[in-house]
Amino acid sequence: MLEHLWFPHDISTFGPRVDWLFELIFWIVVIVWIAVMIAMVTFLIRYRTRPGRKAEYIEGNTRLEVIWTTATAVILVVLAFMSRSTWADIKEHGPAGQVFYAVASKQFNWEITYPGPDGKLGTKDDVTVENEFHVPVNTVVRFDLTSKDVIHSFFVPALRLKQDSVPGRVIKVWFEAREVGTWEIPCAELCGFGHSGMKGSLVVDTPEAYAKWIKDKYSGQ
């Protein structure tokens, strides 16, 4: 349904879980809203003033009060607990990484550091590329997100992923893309006059294409 609700195409493994929660809340909210509106409009029409009418003197109703308070409380608390595990899987733990990168933000670019042939970050053969983030498809990607100046936010709508990058902090992020293609990485946190237009591209490659790209990059060094 969300595809029809203007949501961008989703390519990540946790994206469907996020969308499912969005949809669940959508239905709760729409039902509550329609119920409230039906009640309101009905009352507004039925009890509009007419000559000789007098309102009924009703001061309240404790039973009703208790019912709607507990009903809302139950719905909301259950919702919170249902969301918890999705959140924990995305931001607290998550699967073991298969490829590793470092992503640093600065006004107004993304710097992607690839580990080089030895597969380790922080060694001399690392390669840093601006704004181009190549990852293999169907692979758990993990990266360390940092910032060199102000706060930015790593946002890939197609992944449903967003994480602020904070100077002075290293934040661990993961995702797994399920589809080959190129998607934009806009910066989602105001970071100065170049905030609008600060974007990179996420290129999800087939394993072969990825290997080739990596090889070209390293040999270019």
């Binding site: 009640a39 009352f43 009924e56 009703i58 109703n61």
Partner: peptide
């Protein structure tokens, strides 16, 4: 909403 109910709006 309860206030509107059976009022004289």
């Amino acid at each position: 909403l309860g206030t509107l109910y059976k009022g004289n709006i």
